[in-house]
Simulated scan of single mutants.
Amino acid sequence: MRSSNDSIVVAELRRRLFTGDLRPGLPVNIADVADDLGISTAPVRDALMRLSERGLINRVEGRGFFVAVTPDHEASELLGILHNIITLAIEKSRLPNGLDRDEVSPDNPPSLILTGHDQLNEMLERICSPTVAAIAVSVADRLWDVRRRIADHAGRACPEARLVAAIMRLLARSDRPRAKRLVDIAYKSSQKFLLKQMVNG
């Protein structure tokens, strides 16, 4: 059985990935993370194993754990898959599970709707079936570095959180066409960003 410490460490490591504290290709020092959190190394190792199963961390036999790298050309393909999943989910969606229309009214700021760095994943779990959501979250996780770089490039706080909140508000009003257009715009913008990175890289 997984301990609560494991979940806490997973959440902290994911936060460090999305904020850029952990960089692609670099090793993760288990002892340092354990010291930072004031815990033993065992839950840190367990958390890294869980993240390696989701493609966020690579485990190299005899060398330890490293932050996973998704090449931009692969990220471009993954973005296409994620775009298709979200578009289909929106087409089939009704009011997202557990979401009341008042919860996404203009009087409620986005930060009160979905908080933390997993806004996109939470949206996927709300609008997709459990099986599809698991696939979509896995794809989104593998895009963590691209998502972080796009946020950095945007130069403003939480662009992804605002995007997710806007989509959820539209779905709460059953305005699927506008929600799909918003997803299309975000997808094209992300692909344009990746193309520039590949050309300039």
Rank of each mutant, 00 (worst) to 15 (best):
D184L: 12
V60E: 09
D72W: 08
Q119C: 09
A42D: 15
A165K: 02
G201R: 07
S40Y: 15
M49R: 15
K92I: 09
R162Q: 06
V67F: 08
R178C: 15
G38D: 14
D35C: 09
P96N: 03
G64D: 01
L99C: 03
G62Q: 04
T70W: 05
R173C: 11
V28A: 07
L51Q: 08
G55I: 13
L182S: 10
D21E: 14
V33D: 11
R181W: 14
A166M: 02
V33I: 15
G64F: 00
A68E: 13
K188T: 13
R63Y: 03
V164N: 08
I86E: 11
N5Q: 10
L82H: 10
G55S: 12
G155I: 06
R15I: 08
I85D: 14
D145G: 02
R45A: 14
D100M: 07
L78H: 13
S105W: 11
I113P: 05
L143M: 04
D100S: 10
H83Y: 13
V60F: 06
A133W: 03
I8M: 08
S93R: 08
R156G: 02
L112F: 10
V10L: 00
L112G: 05
S52M: 14
V137I: 00
V132S: 04
L78E: 13
L95G: 06
N121E: 15
S129P: 01
A151Y: 01
L82M: 07
V28C: 05
P43E: 14
A68G: 05
A42F: 13
R156E: 04
T115V: 02
T87V: 14
L13N: 03
R148C: 07
E103P: 02
A179M: 12
D46Q: 13
S93A: 14
G25I: 04
A68I: 07
E103F: 06
A134E: 01
L82Y: 10
P43I: 13
V9E: 05
E77F: 09
G155Y: 05
D36R: 10
A133Q: 00
N58L: 12
V139D: 08
S189V: 07
L22Y: 01
E125A: 01
S52A: 15
M168T: 07
I150D: 04
D100K: 03
E12F: 04
V104F: 14
A11L: 03
S105T: 11
F18S: 08
I90L: 09
A136P: 00
G98K: 02
S93G: 08
L114E: 14
S111I: 11
V137R: 01
V9T: 01
G201D: 15
D184G: 09
I86Y: 10
V199G: 06
V146W: 00
Q191F: 07
P27W: 06
A165D: 07
G55H: 11
G155D: 02
S105C: 13
I39N: 11
I90Y: 08
M1L: 04
V9M: 05
S189H: 06
D145W: 01
G38P: 11
N108I: 15
V164D: 02
V69W: 09
R16L: 11
A42W: 12
E61K: 02
R16P: 03
S111Y: 14
P130C: 02
N97C: 04
C158T: 04
R16K: 09
V146A: 08
K188L: 12
R173H: 14
A68M: 09
I8G: 02
V10S: 01
